[in-house]
Amino acid sequence: MNDATSSSARARVLEAARRVLITEADALYLLAEQLPEDFTAVVDLILAAKGRVVVSGIGKSGHIARKISATLASTGTPSHFVHAAEASHGDLGMITRDDICLLISNSGETSELRDLVAHTRRFAICMVAISSKPASTLMKAADYRLILPAAPEACAIGMAPTTSTTLTLALGDALAVALMEKRGFVAEDFRIYHPGGRLGAQMATVGQLMHDGAELPLVEAETPMSEALIEMTSKGLGIAVVVSGGTLRGVISDGDLRRKMSNLMTHTAGEVANTDPVTVPAGQLAAQALALMNDRKISALVVVDEEARPKGVIHIHDLLRAGVA
């Protein structure tokens, strides 16, 4: 293959990719303009539910259903996925009268969903359907209908689930985020469901990672520097926290020691300390504390309460070990 042929082939590949992305992007804009009429009712329904949102589908819709369920569960809406085929062989027992079934089928005629549909009708379990065919069997049976706009699939033959699965996934995300906002779901709530890995570390608070109690290198302002150095060294955090009457009066760092090396031992901790140290509250995100350390070029921060009383010390090594960086 010569350079011209290779360049032409590459151009065709890139053009196909752009066509897919533009087709799906146009469909998403259409969905945003034509959100299903039952969307807000479904959000209210889920908020009021005593049970879980049971999501199901088959094939590509099954993969999307599993992801929607996972997103709901991780953002404060109890949910689990039931495989449509397995439901017919005992997993219908996983669905209770307090649950809401969210069934997905682009055509609305998926035979594997029939037992699930029949189960919801028999036991008066609320059923929400997602489909692009409002006149389909599934949509006629549903209590609430989330209708996808008519949009072409992005594949060259117009048959492989591409645009339709993208729209379904996006609609599921829209549901999850709308539910988050109505629940008042905040960053700390998010971390409860994501304690592991880098995401969990990014959502950790200073109070969860700081040194406190006996680990705090606390000295009174009147403490001789000879004693302050012992406390500073023994706690191994690179600083001494200077207090008076329980309130923060300053911080002694390695830099403060170097700047006042002359006749250091003749001074008290209060005389050597930086009286305007950088502090953070215990509720601040650890990632924000790391950004502050990098900005100020310091390795430790004193954690204080609303009355400027020291509650802990957070060191950059603690953040690195936790995977915040």
Rank of each mutant, 00 (worst) to 15 (best):
K297E: 14
T233K: 03
S107A: 15
E37W: 04
L301N: 07
R12P: 03
H194C: 00
A221D: 08
R145T: 00
S132F: 00
V302L: 03
A187H: 08
A273T: 02
D254H: 04
L30M: 07
T5C: 10
R259M: 09
P195A: 08
E188Q: 04
L35H: 09
R249A: 14
G90M: 04
L179G: 00
T40V: 13
V241Y: 08
V219S: 03
A201E: 06
A32S: 09
V280M: 07
C155M: 05
E271N: 06
A41D: 15
S79A: 15
V82I: 11
L146Y: 10
E307N: 14
H80P: 08
L116A: 08
Q208M: 10
S6Q: 15
G196S: 02
A129V: 08
A156M: 00
R296D: 06
R10P: 06
S8C: 11
D3Q: 13
T96N: 09
L216T: 07
I314G: 05
L47V: 10
A87S: 07
T247N: 14
S244Q: 13
M139S: 04
T275K: 13
I125N: 07
L148R: 02
V82W: 14
V241W: 03
G246T: 06
L171K: 08
I22S: 12
R18D: 03
K297L: 15
R309G: 08
A325W: 08
A156I: 01
A25C: 12
N106H: 13
R183A: 10
G197F: 02
G62M: 10
V128H: 07
L319G: 09
V303R: 04
A273S: 06
F39E: 02
I314W: 01
E227L: 01
A322I: 09
I46T: 08
L199E: 06
K67E: 06
A269Q: 01
L169I: 06
D26P: 04
L146D: 05
F81N: 06
P310D: 05
A322D: 13
T205P: 11
Q208I: 11
D173A: 01
G270D: 10
A204Y: 07
L216E: 01
A178M: 14
M265W: 10
L169M: 10
I46M: 06
E86M: 00
Q208K: 12
T233R: 05
N2I: 08
R259P: 07
I316H: 07
A178L: 14
H83D: 04
